[in-house]
Nucleic acid binder design. Structure first.
Lengths: 196, 196
DNA sequence: ATCGCTTTTTATCATTTGTTAATGCGTTGT
DNA sequence: ACAACGCATTAACAAATGATAAAAAGCGAT
């Protein structure tokens, strides 16, 4: 009975963020497909150009995706907290090669699902398809929200929004990661923190 | 014979940007599903919260997506030129309601495909599925590229990149749209233009 | 506890970008 | 031709952010 194990309870928590009405059957399909993965703080989940064909659901911990800019500085693209699905396979990879880097910022527990099997499930099962599409939609929507904020908000406003989006995260991750996520230097971040 | 009509020749041009090796069969499936749409300069293709269940492929002209920020200023999210697919249905809508606005900046000719029929095709046909996934991937990749530039490049560098990405576009679209896309004011844009 | 290392803060100054307002300039309609 | 309008440019000043470097604070290993 899948709903007696701890793993599935928290997988459910993640699923509910995207498809709260997903049936028990579909949930159990996902659970059957998934295997748990543990990552230590600082460990790498996937690297740009490396082979990768999984979908990932973060059950516990904090992770981030990032890329180097032209000067080689790491720019944090997104943070991920408990219950969030990492960027979906189809948008995150090309020819099964990752386009991004992803590291665990704290110890993490995740569920991963083979991308091919998950695609199969999406094709066969309308509910899973809607779940997968919801993940895609949320991914894009978050990017659009960030895009507008980067284009028209001040650094202070972006920091305030960041604090709403990721409560307490500011205290758990290095400020250099937060600063690059916000598009400011860590000196500026420090200044804004002092102001309040 | 679909490849004798002008429409299909330019639909092919667009398809080649995403799936250059798509078979003639798959191309003809897409062509059969699509209907041509003409838009006059300034006309609206879809509006936030309005019903919309199409995929759109831009054959000719320039279009843009945008959203108002909190002050009501329109922020241009992306520009689209000949041969580009507009943001895909699954990421652009929620419950068949558009999340974005899209206007024609010049007279436009597009092909639109019913999203439901297109999804059906994606499910049934691996080639079309790969094409659709490629559209998704390009959409996300462009956002990630822009994200990095917004986070770590100066306004001048972003303008230079814009000129590479969209040759001549600067001369055809109102500068206020370019400026909001770059995340600067139109006064700043004017200054940068003067510098070179 | 202390040393050595990294991260964060603080200070100073330079640069970039925003704000406001005036000017110019082309387009359109009469 | 001219007025009226919208848009782009320019100028002057203010504010935000970056760059650099030094000081302070945190943190892990011994």
């Amino acid at each position: 009975m899948y709903f007696f194990t701890m793993t599935h309870e928290t997988l459910d928590y993640a699923i509910n963020k995207y498809s709260p009405n997903l049936s028990l059957d579909a949930r159990s399909d996902l659970a059957r497909l998934g295997q748990e993965v543990f990552l230590e703080k600082g460990a790498c989940l996937f690297s740009r150009n490396a082979f990768d064909d999984y979908e990932y659901i973060l059950l516990k911990g904090i992770a981030r995706t990032y890329l180097p800019n032209m000067e080689g500085t790491e720019i944090t693209l997104s943070f991920f907290e408990e219950g969030m699905v990492l960027p979906p396979y189809v948008t995150r990879t090309n020819n099964q090669r990752s386009l991004l880097f992803c590291d665990a910022i704290t110890d993490c527990r995740l569920v991963r699902l083979g991308a091919t099997e998950f695609e199969r499930l999406m094709i066969d099962n309308l509910e899973i398809r809607n779940f997968g599409n919801s993940v895609l939609r949320v991914e894009l929507q978050n990017k659009v929200l960030k895009e507008i904020r980067m284009a028209s908000w001040s650094a202070k406003e972006r920091l305030q929004q960041f604090r709403k989006d990721f409560t307490m995260l500011e205290n758990y991750v290095p400020h250099s990661m937060v600063a690059s996520y916000l598009g400011i230097t860590n000196v500026t971040l420090s200044r804004l923190r002092k102001e309040g």
